[in-house]
């Protein structure tokens, strides 16, 4: 078990592309951290640098008390689960899981014992003699995890491990991975572009964009107090509504002219962005904002209403028992649910 520390870690590719701007953070022992962001944001690069598959341009990476910048991946005592599983196609499940131990000179009896224990834990006991090609996607994923577990590493690294599975299986594996990590208590870093995975699995989330860390926080913090318009619109489905507005005289007015209630103005003035989550408003005839509904989307448990507030796109989600139809209505905003962001840089005010 170990904590992972990144100190001003930076990655520049030989062609001059800055993949990761200097970043620092610490993952405490036993924590499950999810790196999330759109494709090309550098999250996988960061993970691969921790794994040792990608050299670090600048900065220090330590696992436990040891700086491991120049340590071979094999000697970092880590295990990695890849997106396409990367199982050795010619080896049986048991051999796949035991290969890392075999290379480290573990005795046959010991390997056998550990592989069986891991297989037991992952419900793979009946498949130990099969080849990966004879397994389903979910089973292959479990073998890849088994290969990580048997080594008893200090750190698990997951690189989008569930994105090749179908939606139903993904939900199930999400819970399995999380339960397994809790049980083993191994520090884990998990890369995904799926914000639902990030929200549901993480102890803490690191949101990345274009090579920079946008925000680090618990799922609650990330959702409740997004640090930037990027985080606000990336986390949450449907995303937070972002409206152009103007602050002055202790009040915030939308560009359409309407005043936003409950806005934490705090002396700000000038152009800004107003963020309101779709579920943080109520439909009510006595509401503060006029809402023109264009489309109603039926989701079963919820309905999504898409329309305009003051000429700007706005979405609202309402419970299924609430009456909703296309046309004019009014919205009231829940207290302390209005987020204000800098108009130019998108930082939270």
């Amino acid at each position: 078990m170990a904590n992972v520390t990144l100190q001003d870690v930076r990655k520049v590719y030989p062609n001059g592309f800055e993949a990761i701007y200097p970043c620092s953070f610490e993952v405490p022992d036993g924590e499950f951290v999810v790196l999330v962001g759109p494709s090309g944001c550098g999250k996988s690069t960061l993970l691969r640098m921790v794994a040792g598959l990608e050299p670090i341009t600048e900065g220090d990476l330590s696992i436990g008390a040891r700086i491991v910048n120049d340590v071979d991946p094999a000697d970092r005592n880590i295990a990695m689960v890849f997106q396409n599983y990367a199982l050795y196609p010619h080896m049986t499940v048991a051999k796949n899981m035991g290969y890392g131990l075999k290379n480290r000179g573990t005795s046959k009896a010991e390997i056998d014992k550990k592989v069986r224990a891991a297989a037991e834990m992952l419900n793979l006991s009946d498949y130990l003699d099969r080849r990966p090609s004879q397994l389903s996607g979910g089973q292959r994923q479990r073998v890849a995890m088994g290969r990580a577990i048997v080594r008893e590493p200090d750190l698990f690294l997951f690189d989008e491990p569930l994105s090749n599975l179908d939606a139903k299986l993904r939900n199930q594996m999400r819970i399995e991975v999380r339960a397994l990590q809790r049980r083993l208590g191994v520090t884990s870093m998990y890369v995904t572009h799926d914000q639902v995975e990030a929200m549901t699995m993480a102890d803490r989330i690191i949101v990345m964009n274009a090579g920079r860390i946008e925000q680090i926080g618990t799922p609650g913090e990330i959702y409740g107090r997004p640090a930037s318009t990027f985080v606000a619109s990336f986390m949450g489905a449907p995303p937070m509504n972002l409206l152009n507005g103007m602050a002055g005289d202790g009040a915030v007015r939308l560009d359409g002219g309407e005043q936003v209630p409950h806005a934490p103005v705090n002396g700000h003035a000038g152009a800004l962005m107003v963020g309101i989550r779709p579920e943080d408003v109520l439909l009510s005839e006595a509401g503060d904002l006029a809402f023109n509904v264009h489309i109603v989307e039926e989701l079963g448990a919820l309905r999504l209403l898409h329309g305009e507030v003051g000429g700007q796109a706005f979405s609202v989600s309402v419970a299924k028992d609430q009456n909703a139809q296309v046309g004019q209505t009014r919205l009231s905003v829940k207290p302390s649910s209005v987020h204000l962001f800098d108009a130019a840089e998108g930082r939270r005010l």
Partner: peptide, 22 residues
């Protein structure tokens, strides 16, 4: 696939072992 080499590297297989075993 590239990942196979990376998995082998993490599994502690050097160039010779990767060649012979995989």
């Amino acid at each position: 696939p590239e990942e196979l080499i990376e998995a082998a590297r993490i599994d502690g297989a050097g160039p010779w072992k990767f060649f012979v075993d995989i």
